[in-house]
Amino acid sequence: MLKTVKLRAGYGKVMILQGVDFHIGKKEIISIIGRNGVGKSTLMKTLIGEVPVSSGSIEFAGKDCTKLKAYERAQLGMGYIPQGHGVFPLLTVEENLLVGQCINGNKQTTKKHMELVYDYFPRLKERRTQRAGTMSGGERAMLSIARILIGEPSLILFDEPSEGVQPNIVELIGEIILKINADLGVTILLVEQNIGLVQQVSEKAYVIDKGLIAHELDKAMINDNETTKRLLAV
């Protein structure tokens, strides 16, 4: 589904990613964990195309997309949910959702998907004419997920969905991640600080350190609090 080879990327002359090699198979849920400032968000931004690749390659859905622009990658079916949810504050909930239909180049099935996401998130249906800027953190998180789902992505890149969201909503986000993975067969890559959420959803996790993949953890290791504490402790 997604594969990077010796990926180096960063801002100007400062390389944050120093040669990241990893891959995700179809329908997997994989988490990327690590301490602050080791390049987790940069990796996500590089995958969607906001941070330029200086060497190495990114392959997505069988295509080399190292040189593609962000909107072209999105149209291939990559759905990126940025840190802080990134809703458009002055657009209504419904308008926010409609923007998502550009992903995957899918223009016909919007109505069906609209009903699907309102099914998942009944709250958004109640609020559909309300401006997104007036909603709570949890509702924005829901909206950012729903907006991606409208576009029928094959891969979702989650950058810290738990940020600014109360604990019970974090758990709900976890349930939703599992549900969309099971129902729709969407592959999910999650960058997260909240280890509870990582344990709740992921089958496999990569630990990133100093711009490199330092460890690969299986389900048992993720659930072992001693291991994760050791790897993430400062």
């Binding site: 969607i48 195309g49 906001e50 622009k69 962000a70 909107y71 999105a74 149209q75 759905g79 990126y80 940025p82 990134g86 458009f88 504050p89 002055l90 657009l91 308008e95 409609l98 923007v99 998502g100 550009c102 992903i103 995957n104 180049g105 907006r147 991606i148 576009g151």
Partner: peptide
């Protein structure tokens, strides 16, 4: 819709597939 989205946040808009 796309132009208003781009106006509010061009980065998010292009991450969602808008040129």
């Amino acid at each position: 819709l796309h132009s208003r989205a781009t106006m509010q946040n061009a980065v998010i808009a292009r991450n969602l597939g808008i040129n």
